[in-house]
Design a protein around this nucleic acid. Structure first.
Length: 279
DNA sequence: CAAGAATCCTGTCAGC
DNA sequence: TGCTGACAGGATTCTT
C-alpha cells in the first residue's frame, strides 16, 4: 500500500504526464469511494488546465486553473493508471478516468475503495478536513530530534503506534515505521515518551533515510503497485524486517545469539523487529 | 482525553 | 483443483 515514498513517486509521475495539460473529459464510474465524490466532479474537472502538483503526507494535490485542487488519497489499494486514450477500456475498479487534451487517460483504480477524491479551494488546501490535523512532514527540515521528542512527550503508547499516528508525524505507514525502528535499533514496543535524547537523535535520520532511499528507488512495496507510467513497480524491494518473520536478522550473527525477526501485533497491525538489536 | 478495537471493501495467498 | 479463512500497506469512528 502506498506510503509516503510511493505517493511521492505517483505524484511525480502524474506531474510528468499532466502538468500543463487540459482535462478534455472526465468519466465518473461511481458516486462514491470512501466518501461521496464532490458534487459535479466531472463538470468541475472538464476543461480545466492542470497547473501543478504537491504532496502532503500521503495525499496528492493536483492544482487546477479554476481555483480548485483535486485532493487524491490512494487508501490501501489505490493506484493511478496511465494509458493512451486509444485503449480506453476501463480496467477493473477504475472508478474515475480523466482524458487529457494530448490523448492520455489517467485512471484512479482502487479495488478496496479506501481511497478518496475531493475538491478543495487551492488557496486553502491545508484547511481541508483531511489535511488540517496532520503533523509535520518527516522529510521537512523542521522535523528533527527536538521536534520528535516534543510530539512524543507524554505519550505512553508504544512508539510504533505513535509513529503511525498521522497527527504526530504525517506520512509514515506500517512498513516504513518497522524499517526505521530497525535502523534506529529501537523496539516497536518501547513507550513513545522514552524515545528522546540519543534515541530520538537516531530515529530521525533513520526515518529520513528509509523514506529517501525508497523515493530514490522509485517507490516500492506493494505487490500490485503500478507506477503512473503504467509499469509494474518495485515489489522486489528488500525489506530488512518487514514481512520477514522467522528469517535471520541481517545485522546479527544468527542463532543461538539471535532468534531472527519476530512479529507481534500492535494496534491490529503486524510489527516486525529484531528482538536482539532493538531495545 | 487517550488508547485500543471495529470498520469500510476486495484481492491474494496459505492451508486443508 | 477448489474451497475457506486469515490477512493486507489507511484512517475514521466507536468503545472503553
Amino acid at each position: 500500500m502506498p506510503e509516503l515514498p510511493e505517493v511521492e513517486t505517483v505524484m511525480r509521475g502524474l506531474r510528468a504526464r499532466l502538468e500543463g495539460r487540459v482535462i478534455a473529459r472526465a468519466r465518473i464510474g461511481r458516486p462514491d469511494l470512501r466518501w461521496p465524490l464532490p458534487e459535479g466532479l466531472g463538470q468541475r474537472l472538464t476543461g480545466a488546465r492542470v497547473t501543478g502538483f504537491r504532496r502532503r503526507a500521503k495525499y496528492i494535490l493536483m492544482r487546477l486553473d479554476r481555483g480548485e485542487s483535486l485532493l487524491i488519497h490512494l487508501g490501501m489499494s489505490g493506484r493511478m493508471l496511465i494509458a493512451p486514450v486509444s485503449d480506453a477500456e476501463p480496467v477493473a475498479h477504475e472508478h474515475v478516468s480523466l482524458h487529457t487534451d494530448d490523448g492520455w487517460r489517467v485512471g484512479f483504480v482502487d479495488p478496496r475503495r479506501f481511497g478518496s477524491l475531493d475538491l478543495v479551494a487551492s488557496d486553502a488546501e491545508d484547511a481541508h478536513r483531511l489535511l488540517a490535523g496532520l503533523g509535520p512532514e518527516p522529510l521537512g527540515e523542521a522535523f528533527d530530534a527536538s521536534m520528535l521528542s516534543a510530539v512524543l512527550a507524554g505519550k505512553r503508547t508504544p512508539i510504533k503506534a505513535a509513529l503511525l499516528d498521522q497527527r504526530l508525524v504525517a506520512g509514515l505507514g506500517n512498513i516504513y515505521v518497522c524499517e526505521a525502528l530497525f535502523r534506529a535499533r529501537i523496539s516497536p514496543l518501547r513507550r513513545a515518551d522514552s524515545v528522546a535524547g540519543a534515541r530520538a537523535a537516531r530515529l530521525v535520520p533513520a526515518i529520513k533515510a528509509v523514506l529517501t532511499e525508497a523515493i530514490a528507488a522509485g517507490g516500492s512495496s506493494l505487490r500490485d503497485y503500478v507506477q503512473p507510467d503504467g509499469e509494474l513497480g518495485y515489489f522486489q524491494h528488500a525489506w530488512r524486517v518487514y514481512g520477514r518473520e522467522g528469517k535471520a536478522c541481517e545485522a546479527c550473527p544468527g542463532p543461538p545469539a539471535c532468534p531472527g525477526i519476530a512479529r507481534v501485533v500492535q494496534s491490529g497491525r503486524g510489527s516486525f523487529y529484531c528482538p536482539r538489536l532493538q531495545r
